[in-house]
Amino acid sequence: MKTNWNRITLIAAACAVCVGVFATSANATDWGPYQVDDRRSGYTYMTDESRAMQVDSFQNPGMIWVEQGADLWNETNGKAGKSCASCHGDATESMKGVAARYPVYDEKAKKLQNVETRINTCLEKNMQAEPYKWESKEMLSMTTFINNQSLGMPVDVKIDGAAAEWYEKGKAFYYERRGQLDMACKHCHEDNAGGIIRANTLSQGQANGFPTYRLKWQKVGSLHRRFRGCNKQVRSAPFGNGSDEYLALELYVKWRGRGLPVETPAVRN
């Protein structure tokens, strides 16, 4: 039988067009820096209104905490008679990049430190001041201010060396089912990101925008507060703010969002 080459060519061309169409539709939206490979910032799951609110610093309600933090930065506090600025000078220089690389392993403390625990170490040891309470106005202001200095910088956490053990612990947490509803982080944020649960769109649960101004909270909140909320939603006993479990999870989740820009203060539902 004679091969009908014309026909085969036509089918091949049609297939190529089909593949082309699918490839284009899968990448319909160009999210710019808010997407790196298959990693998408929570920004990409929000409404246009919320996105506009976030990127305009005059509209972004989280900027109030940035301003409060800037004031605190220069305030003398504690028996040593120092302010943050006494040692760290201009935060726009000295704090730049901190949010992108934290949490980090601290050789002296022999543990992982995130921005909150690092601030309290500084307050207690160097300034001889009272540590800030987690989710207090002071802590939220200082962390929002510090993290905001890395705005737009790609998340780049270290997971080798002494941090490796914490990374593994965080990863195990992420995949472990918990609570009466028996769900792991991955069931919502990996298997069903983009899906709708009740009135909400599930995101990948990225950590690059914290502290985040949540419309539901009407204020900024820490990543560990969000972890606690998630754990309670699946009817699981939450861990404490600043606990080793959440520090490890913070490192792992930050790693999952590697390359995404720091967005503090992000605006989210």
Partner: peptide, 24 residues
């Protein structure tokens, strides 16, 4: 599956106090 078991109490991890030992 992500779907919770609605009638089970065994083999669950860190269940919140109020829900411990109770099926959904």
């Amino acid at each position: 599956t992500i779907m919770p078991a609605f009638y089970r109490t065994e083999g669950l991890h860190r269940v919140l106090k109020n829900f411990k030992g109770k099926p959904v």
